[in-house]
Measured scan of single mutants.
Amino acid sequence: PQVPQCKALYAYDAQDTDELSFNANDIIDIIKEDPSGWWTGRLRGKQGLFPNNYVTKI
Rank of each mutant, 00 (worst) to 15 (best):
Y10E: 08
L9T: 04
S36R: 12
A11M: 10
Y54W: 07
L43K: 04
P51S: 07
Y54S: 08
Q5W: 07
L20D: 01
L49P: 03
Q15H: 07
Q15K: 09
K7S: 09
I27E: 05
D13M: 10
C6T: 02
Y12G: 00
T40V: 15
G45H: 11
D26P: 00
Q15Y: 06
L43T: 11
K7A: 10
A24P: 15
C6Q: 01
G37M: 04
D13N: 12
A24D: 04
Y54A: 13
A14M: 05
N53A: 10
G41V: 01
Q15M: 13
N23D: 13
N53L: 09
E33F: 05
C6R: 02
Y10V: 11
N52P: 15
E19N: 07
A8T: 04
F50D: 01
P35M: 12
D16R: 14
T56D: 13
E19F: 11
T56G: 07
R42V: 12
Q2W: 11
Q15C: 08
E19T: 11
A24Y: 04
W39K: 03
N53S: 07
G41T: 00
L9S: 06
I27Y: 09
P1D: 10
A24M: 13
Q5L: 10
D34Q: 05
D16M: 11
N53P: 04
G37A: 03
D29N: 07
Q47E: 12
L9W: 03
K32F: 05
L43I: 15
K7L: 11
Q2M: 15
R44T: 07
A8M: 02
Y10T: 08
Y54N: 03
D16S: 12
A24I: 13
D29K: 04
N25D: 13
Q2F: 03
I27M: 10
L20Y: 01
A11N: 15
I31L: 14
N52I: 11
L9A: 06
T56L: 08
Q47G: 04
K57S: 06
S21E: 07
P51D: 11
I27P: 03
W39A: 05
Y12S: 01
V55T: 11
K7C: 13
D34M: 06
Q5M: 13
D16H: 08
N52A: 15
T17R: 11
I28L: 15
L49Q: 10
T17F: 07
K46P: 03
E19L: 05
K32M: 11
D18L: 12
A24K: 13
C6F: 03
Q47N: 04
V55R: 00
I27W: 04
L43P: 00
F50A: 01
Q15L: 09
W39C: 06
W38R: 15
Y12T: 01
T40R: 11
S21M: 02
G37Y: 02
D29S: 09
V55P: 02
T40W: 13
S21G: 05
F50E: 01
G48T: 01
A24R: 12
P51L: 08
Y12R: 11
P51M: 04
K46I: 05
N25C: 11
D29E: 12
Q5Y: 14
G37T: 05
A14N: 04
G41Y: 01
D18Q: 10
D18I: 09
K57Q: 06
L20N: 02
